[in-house]
Simulated scan of single mutants.
Amino acid sequence: MLLRQLTGLMAGLVVAVAAALPAHADELRIGFQKSSFNLIVLKSRGVLEQRLGAGTSVKWVEFPAGPQMLEALNAGSVDFGMTGDTPPLFAQAAGTKLVYVGYEPAKPQAAAILVAKDASIKKLADLKGKRIALQKGSSSHALLLRALDKAGLKWEDIQPAYLAPADARAAFERGAVDAWVIWDPYYASAEKALNPRVLATAEGLTSNQTFYLASREYAQRNKALLNTVFEELTRNSEFMEQHPSDTAKLLSAYVGLDQATFEQVLARHPNYRVGWLDDKTVLEQQKLADRFATQGLIPHPVNVADIVVRH
């Protein structure tokens, strides 16, 4: 009798302990891009795999830009990923099942509108009638829209050339476009190699926010796992802040750009700490969503808070 009672008690304790432990998925598939500096360094150091242990394998999948990554996320090809502020607005307007789960501090100095050094374009108003390269649906889309607003121009006043970063750079180099709206590390690389003139950064125009997203089902089922990932990303950011030279070397080895380029990138935006979204960040994103809706760049207004999952 006593043995049966003890056995039942132990079984109950095992169940209670198991319930208290974080529930981890068997696999975490992370989408990233060449501007996902925190994720790239985290991948290179292998610390997330060490933290999760054998119970959860980590698969890393690279994409050329945010819109492509969100397509894969919506299709279920990856579980979690990082992108700029604009792709989630297009995704929400399209009715995807994606949700915001985390964000990094704003980085307005890490994106810019570039023109050739000897270009006749001297101010934002001079963009009227010009052919401008940008990745459609990316953070550069938001930056250009806000820049046109500041200059008193409409979207119809310019000729957008929707190009992925590598194609946009090639077009910019050969003079096929008059301006290029781009983010780091492509921005810093162009500064080093092409010596362009910076017509404007995102400072005072858009926060150039970074968000982490997942499917709603995955986010709600794996909050403990995502919280662990955020903790490791924040610790990784602290490593990056304390070891800028080593970080630049890691990024250079992975991305293929020189170390000096990444030293410049890190100097512009040293803090990549990650947390769950707060009200201020949601409000800032809502303002951007409203502007896209009034411009007709997304088919209808969206309520950002509807797709925010909090811890």
Rank of each mutant, 00 (worst) to 15 (best):
I113M: 10
T96F: 02
K123F: 03
I113W: 03
S138K: 06
A94Y: 08
S139T: 15
K136L: 07
R146E: 15
M82Y: 06
S138T: 00
K154E: 14
D79V: 01
F80C: 05
A94H: 07
K117R: 15
D149L: 08
V115Y: 11
K128V: 00
R131W: 01
K122L: 07
R146W: 02
Y103C: 11
K97D: 15
Y100H: 10
A116Q: 11
A94K: 10
A106C: 01
A110E: 03
D149S: 13
G81M: 09
G137A: 12
T96N: 10
V78M: 01
Q92R: 08
F90H: 15
A147W: 08
S140N: 09
P88Y: 06
Q109D: 13
A106L: 03
L134I: 06
Q135K: 05
H141T: 15
G95W: 09
P87R: 08
L124R: 01
V115W: 07
K117L: 10
P88V: 14
K123W: 07
K150L: 11
V78Q: 07
Q135I: 08
G129Q: 02
Q109G: 07
K107W: 03
S140M: 04
V78D: 02
P108T: 09
L89H: 14
V78K: 04
V99A: 13
G84R: 07
S140W: 07
I121M: 04
I132D: 08
V101Y: 00
A93Y: 05
K150G: 01
K117C: 01
W155H: 10
G137L: 04
Y103G: 03
G102I: 02
P108V: 14
I113E: 06
G129F: 05
D126L: 12
L124D: 00
A110P: 00
T96A: 08
Y100K: 00
A94T: 06
G95Y: 10
G129R: 04
A147I: 09
L144E: 10
V99T: 09
K123D: 13
S120M: 09
L127V: 02
D85C: 07
L89D: 09
L127D: 05
V78A: 01
S120L: 11
V78R: 00
I132V: 15
L144G: 06
E104R: 05
A110H: 09
L148C: 12
P105Q: 13
A125V: 11
L145A: 11
Y103T: 14
V101Q: 09
A111H: 08
G129L: 09
G95I: 12
L134F: 03
G129C: 02
F80V: 06
L144H: 06
K97W: 03
A147R: 10
A151Q: 13
R131M: 06
A91L: 11
P108K: 12
K117A: 15
D126I: 08
Q135C: 09
L114Y: 03
G137H: 06
Q109W: 12
L89S: 10
A93H: 05
A147N: 10
G81S: 05
G84T: 14
A125R: 13
Q109T: 11
A110K: 01
L127A: 05
R146P: 00
